Amino acid sequence: QTLEAVMAARSQATQVKIDPSNCTPQQLAQYQKAQGDVTNALGKLLAITENYPDLKANQNFLELQSQLEGTENRINVARKDFNDAAKEYNVAIRRFPKSLIAGMCGFDKKNYFEAEAGADKAPKVEF
């Protein structure tokens, strides 16, 4: 059941698409919620492994851990790249002469990708 929840959350998170040229706060919130669901599901999966020593030693589980680590790293890199691009855009539309053009054409400030409250603390799991 937990593994199915992880797979469903991961599938849902990969289906959320954001068009950078037309990104709305609602789309960003939907994306952040999907990522939060994946994190919660993975936290439950890792907590379950505490009670099953055989599962921790299983080669498939070790590969899963490696893949999860890689996924988390890719998410962090993508989040940083997105926030860097949003910052560069926000600075550009505030500087003269681009600020004049941005004001006339209706270019607004883009929101940053922000993690949910408490996402900075990893679930406590011992292997």
Results as ranks from 00 to 15, higher is better:
residue 12 Q to I: 05
residue 101 I to N: 08
residue 80 K to C: 01
residue 30 Q to H: 14
residue 56 K to R: 15
residue 81 D to C: 10
residue 107 F to Y: 14
residue 65 Q to Y: 06
residue 83 N to E: 08
residue 7 M to S: 14
residue 6 V to P: 00
residue 11 S to L: 05
residue 50 E to N: 14
residue 82 F to G: 00
residue 26 Q to W: 08
residue 45 L to G: 02
residue 116 E to H: 08
residue 47 A to C: 11
residue 46 L to G: 00
residue 25 P to I: 05
residue 85 A to K: 12
residue 72 E to P: 00
residue 32 Q to T: 15
residue 67 Q to A: 12
residue 41 A to C: 10
residue 99 S to M: 05
residue 45 L to A: 12
residue 7 M to W: 06
residue 104 M to P: 02
residue 54 D to I: 04
residue 39 T to Y: 03
residue 55 L to Y: 07
residue 66 S to R: 11
residue 14 T to S: 15
residue 33 K to V: 12
residue 21 S to R: 11
residue 77 V to M: 11
residue 124 K to T: 13
residue 45 L to P: 01
residue 94 R to F: 04
residue 112 Y to P: 01
residue 71 T to L: 13
residue 116 E to T: 10
residue 87 K to G: 09
residue 103 G to T: 03
residue 102 A to N: 04
residue 57 A to C: 08
residue 29 A to N: 14
residue 14 T to G: 09
residue 62 L to G: 12
residue 79 R to T: 10
residue 56 K to P: 01
residue 64 L to I: 10
residue 52 Y to V: 12
residue 10 R to I: 02
residue 100 L to W: 00
residue 12 Q to M: 07
residue 66 S to F: 01
residue 36 G to H: 11
residue 93 I to K: 00
residue 112 Y to G: 05
residue 118 G to N: 10
residue 4 E to I: 06
residue 97 P to C: 06
residue 54 D to N: 15
residue 114 E to Y: 03
residue 17 K to P: 01
residue 60 N to H: 13
residue 31 Y to S: 07
residue 15 Q to P: 08
residue 4 E to L: 09
residue 56 K to S: 08
residue 18 I to C: 03
residue 122 A to E: 12
residue 115 A to Y: 05
residue 92 A to N: 15
residue 64 L to D: 02
residue 92 A to V: 05
residue 2 T to Y: 03
residue 92 A to L: 13
residue 114 E to H: 06
residue 123 P to R: 08
residue 44 K to Y: 00
residue 12 Q to C: 04
residue 86 A to W: 02
residue 39 T to V: 11
residue 34 A to S: 14
residue 125 V to N: 08
residue 36 G to Q: 14
residue 33 K to I: 08
residue 88 E to F: 09
residue 118 G to H: 09
residue 22 N to P: 01
residue 46 L to R: 08
residue 19 D to M: 10
residue 60 N to G: 08
residue 47 A to T: 15
residue 81 D to A: 15
residue 59 Q to T: 09
residue 39 T to G: 07
residue 117 A to H: 12
residue 95 R to L: 12
residue 47 A to I: 15
residue 44 K to M: 04
residue 123 P to V: 06
residue 72 E to S: 06
residue 39 T to F: 04
residue 67 Q to M: 12
residue 9 A to Q: 03
residue 7 M to T: 11
residue 66 S to V: 04
residue 74 R to Q: 14
residue 23 C to A: 15
residue 11 S to Y: 06
residue 87 K to W: 06
residue 1 Q to D: 10
residue 44 K to H: 05
residue 118 G to E: 07
residue 63 E to H: 13
residue 115 A to G: 10
residue 40 N to T: 15
residue 89 Y to K: 07
residue 76 N to I: 02
residue 63 E to N: 14
residue 66 S to D: 12
